[in-house]
Nucleic acid binder design. Structure first.
Length: 494
RNA sequence: GCCCCCAUCGUCUAGAGGCCUAGGACGCCACCCUUUCAAGGUGGAGAUCACCGGUUCGAAUCCGGUUGGGGGCACCA
């Protein structure tokens, strides 16, 4: 094996801005990125915004921002939401490429490879229902294929606007999938599908094919949900006289019940994980192993290392369940590997106030100490927001309250810690000093520093961080009592 | 309903005919360490490799079937 020479390989990711960046899209983008980097190819981002009703610019920026956050970069396409397109095939937003699609649609119509269809949604629906009754594959019955000029004139007089359908020849379509090997479909089952809506907007299947050709895409790597759509694309490619790219269909990411991952059953937005304190390194490492492995027992890899090892042919065929526990574990691995200053910097977005570098760096050792050694999100939140009774009820008596102490004494200690903290209410305080003050306060009241520790840390960390950080502290702490606290909370009817 | 894809511990996976009485990791359990919780260390439970039938001296690995699961069949992407 030698380092591959630059190749003319071109791959793309083609997100549709109809929602925030989804785990599945992120993983597909990652695999394309890894593949492109492994073979020295070119990576293109193309925004598929032909669905004007659902797409928004806010989603486009969420997608682009979070892709960057993950460390995935691309050679061509918009680098910033709403920004300028970079690359020889600009524009890279489909909404700006309409003339191309119109031209190609006309070409299809002129060569008699496509035809106008005047059927109404109601008529189409009736046909579909009839087919269902007869246990046939639901597909267009070809009514408008043999329209006379008089029929057409009558429809136009009625005010009907035609959609454009591809005339699908009854071939057997066979292709060699990069991941699945030989796959074969019978085109006769497809039916003539619509490629341009009656309102003139081209449809997805049509525009991907046109753009992949126009942008010189050589390898189409996408989710398995498109496997059954591939014969449509190949039919289109043939009708248009294009070169056929290689296809590779990666397995789906699954909900715990093994259905295709969905917003309903799982948390799918990358932003949500980002806000909860997951590190991009952990996310990338985790996602990469959902459907691929280097074939060894190693499992901690940076993006660069992944790109060096990634082989598209090694990608699995079976879907993989998204296991949050494992993500949490990986996140912990990466957080613990961070130096104090690094961690503090990563934590900064979660702090309730803007702090300058100097303060952040001074706080770093304290934050790291606290976060890595212990932190239970639920306990902290409870301590800060609930009444003493609730706190006491929430936890097994011996869980939170030190041996030999009562819940009341513990609550008092908390107040004590808060007082100590208030005594040094100076933005410039040194973390070490603060802890020393708290410790001596504890001893002055006859508490062993150890017993005092828990309320103390609540006072300190609770003051320094905002609620979203609790999520990441949970990941750091990996506290087993969390589930018990959750159970207690639901018992309380909260 | 029709078409296509898939199938190793609960989960992510190693395994491309003998190295497998199936390995690692997460999670779980126990113990150690520790002022508590984590982290770390040690050990443990956990998979008749979905099932049936071939091919072979030999199959988790090859072939066929069955079952199960998933995906796709829009004037969504």
């Amino acid at each position: 094996m030698s380092i591959p020479a630059p190749t003319p390989i071109r791959v793309r990711m083609a997100p549709s801005p109809t929602g925030p960046l989804h785990l599945g899209t992120a993983r597909t983008s990652l695999y394309n990125f890894l593949f492109a980097h492994h073979v020295g190819g070119t990576y293109v981002l193309r925004v598929e915004d032909t669905d004007v009703e659902r797409g928004t610019e806010a989603f486009e920026s969420d997608i682009i921002d979070n892709l960057h956050w993950l460390g995935i970069s691309w050679d061509e396409g918009p680098q910033v939401a709403g920004g300028e397109d970079i690359g020889p095939y600009a524009p890279y937003r489909q909404s700006q490429r309409m003339e191309l699609y119109a031209r190609e649609a006309d070409r299809l119509l002129a060569s008699n490879a496509a035809y106008h269809c005047y059927c109404t949604p109601g008529e189409l629906d009736a046909v579909r229902k009839e087919q269902e009754r007869n246990h046939e594959a639901p597909r267009y019955n070809g009514r408008c294929l043999s329209l006379t000029d008089a029929d057409r004139a009558a429809f136009i007089a009625e005010g009907r606007q035609p959609a454009l359908r591809l005339k699908v020849p009854p071939d057997h379509i066979r292709f060699d999938d990069l991941i699945r090997g030989e796959v074969e479909f019978d085109n006769a089952l497809l039916g003539d599908f619509v490629i341009v809506r009656s309102n003139g907007m081209p449809l997805y299947h049509f525009v991907v094919v046109v753009d992949d050709e126009a942008m010189g895409i050589t390898h189409v790597v996408r989710g398995e949900d498109h496997l059954s759509n591939t014969p449509k694309h190949i039919a289109l490619i043939r009708a248009l006289g294009y070169r056929e790219p290689k296809f590779g269909h990666i397995p789906l990411i699954l909900n715990p019940d093994r259905s295709k991952m969905s917003k309903r059953k799982s948390q799918t937005a990358i932003t949500a994980y980002r806000e909860q304190g997951y590190l991009p390194e952990a996310m990338v490492n985790f996602l990469a192993f959902l459907g691929w492995s280097p074939g060894t027992e190693e499992e901690i890899f940076s993006l660069e290392e992944l790109a060096a090892r990634f082989e598209i042919g090694q990608v699995h065929k079976a879907g993989a369940v998204f296991d949050k526990e494992r993500l949490d574990y990986l996140n912990g691995v990466y957080i613990r590997s961070l130096a104090d200053g690094q961690l503090a910097l990563r934590l900064r977005p979660f702090l309730p106030v803007e702090l300058d570098d100097d303060i952040v760096m001074r706080l770093a050792p304290l934050l790291k100490e606290r976060l890595v050694r212990l932190a239970d999100a639920t306990e902290l939140a409870a301590f800060l927001t609930e009444t003493d009774e609730q706190v006491a009820a929430l936890h097994e008596p011996d869980q939170l309250v030190p041996k030999g102490r009562t819940a009341g004494e513990t609550a008092a200690a908390l107040g004590l810690a808060r007082d100590a903290l208030a005594a040094v209410d100076d933005p410039d305080f040194a973390a070490g000093e603060l802890e020393a003050i708290c410790r001596s306060a504890a001893e002055a009241h006859g508490w062993k520093p150890g017993d005092f520790f828990r309320p103390l840390r609540v006072a300190i960390t609770g003051r320094l961080v905002s609620p979203p950080l609790f999520g990441s502290m949970e990941l750091l702490g990996r506290n087993r009592t969390l589930s018990r606290a959750d159970a207690a909370r639901s018992r309380l009817g909260d």
